[in-house]
Amino acid sequence: MAVLLSVWFVAGLGCGVLWADWLNQYTLPGTAFPLGFWFAQQGSIVVFVAVILVYCVLMNRLDRKHHNELVEIRRKEGR
């Protein structure tokens, strides 16, 4: 989760704001986007969607694992 939040910060506030003027000297390959501008108006949003997707998959997997372990423990106790 800390990793996901740092991706959030780097993509949004980092590339979109803090380093935008520096990144603006490059363009996104194949397009006319200055890179800093692209991060601020397109890239950050794409990254945000990906962050939530990864979070959903990982957390739900974690939840299922805990749930299964719990069921396991209860079954053993039952015996």
């Binding site: 949004g12 704001v17 108006q41 950050s44 949003i45």
Partner: peptide, 23 residues
């Protein structure tokens, strides 16, 4: 360029909401 603050702000806040608060 500065209009990006609204794009980033409104979608980025969503990430915080979905990760730290909603569930």
């Amino acid at each position: 360029y500065a209009g990006g603050v609204y794009l980033m702000g409104w979608t980025g806040g969503y990430v915080l909401l979905a990760l730290m608060l909603a569930p």
